[in-house]
Design a protein around this nucleic acid. Sequence first.
DNA 1: AGTTTCACATACCCTGGGTATGTGGAATTC
DNA 2: GAATTCCACATACCCAGGGTATGTGAAACT
Lengths: 195, 195
Amino acid sequence: MSRAEQREATRRALLEEGRRRFASDGYHDVVLSEVASGAGVTKGAAYHHFGSKLGLFRAVVAEAQEELGARVAAEADRHEDLWEQLRAGCRAFLAAGTDASVSRILLVDAPTVLGWDEWRAMDEASSARHLKEALESLVAAGIVDEQPVEPLARLLSGAMNEAALWLARTGDEEALEQAAHALDRVLGGLRSGAA
Amino acid sequence: MSRAEQREATRRALLEEGRRRFASDGYHDVVLSEVASGAGVTKGAAYHHFGSKLGLFRAVVAEAQEELGARVAAEADRHEDLWEQLRAGCRAFLAAGTDASVSRILLVDAPTVLGWDEWRAMDEASSARHLKEALESLVAAGIVDEQPVEPLARLLSGAMNEAALWLARTGDEEALEQAAHALDRVLGGLRSGAA
DNA sequence: AGTTTCACATACCCTGGGTATGTGGAATTC
DNA sequence: GAATTCCACATACCCAGGGTATGTGAAACT
């Protein structure tokens, strides 16, 4: 194995082991040296690659964020109708929240550990941006009334984050159906001439 | 000062200094011995009263939670109409989120530090319960369609938490108005025969 | 007045994040 | 292909800070 390959291999091993532990134990209870030994290396390697425990966490978050964004977008893009795209995206997000490596890392720990500002910036770069764009398209198409999209997107984003956490906890198939229904209700309020 | 009075005085001093620091620096960056010295005592006193750093935080959270719940309930109770009660409560919550000792402590740190389960249990005991009760009353009055109230409450709770954080960050008078409007839209979707 | 109690102070322990430095083998140079 | 450089890590160490064990003096009780 060449040096570049070797480097990439340990990097990946650290990311994966880190993700596992962050998801199951939470940021604070994760010991960096244990992540390293779990990945078959030592603390030194982790610091070489990521600079700090927070650096590793940041990298894990970024990766998980991207994956989630892609997953949601993929589900949304299966529909032609703009309104259905929004619904499908939201549902995909709720379903994804069941995964601990999403909920614990992205929704619970990330805001505190990275600070709310940085977390929001990362969120903006993926899922939140999709949501905002979807809403803007709907406004442009006249399906949703003209209005500031930003606060609306925040409200919906928050609603779905919380719902996803709730589902992750009471990981029930029925609960997911209920949440999806409730979400439809809420979204319904946005349609032109609904209220 | 009697011993009981003295005890209560230091307890309060620790709670208040703790609340200040947790709000401005966040749980992790708060050093317990500094909280103590800020309150005019030593670490020993803090451990005597609260058992651990987490114990102090828990006490601070409980107090802040109660205050918030009371504030929201008070605003809601100024209205006769059930629907207006819900709206007023939500608006009061949004306004309260501007306060750092609410947003940082209750919304950002508490879920991670106490763990989501414990946080949810505490939330349930105050604001979340009020929200659920309000929704149940609305359903009973036929203003909102019959449906599972639990997931709906979670969605709304999450939406308001996130909105409050957003407001705390861009602490704008106009933003608050926008958020309140967006909230009305979303709530509007719940009324019978709206969708 | 003697004894007990208890609210704290003091001194110490130890985990764990961070850093500074060493090292062996791959990549490069001549 | 021997010498040199480079670099991905390992090793050894530092120290901040949460937690604990024990001491102490003044109030409360007898």
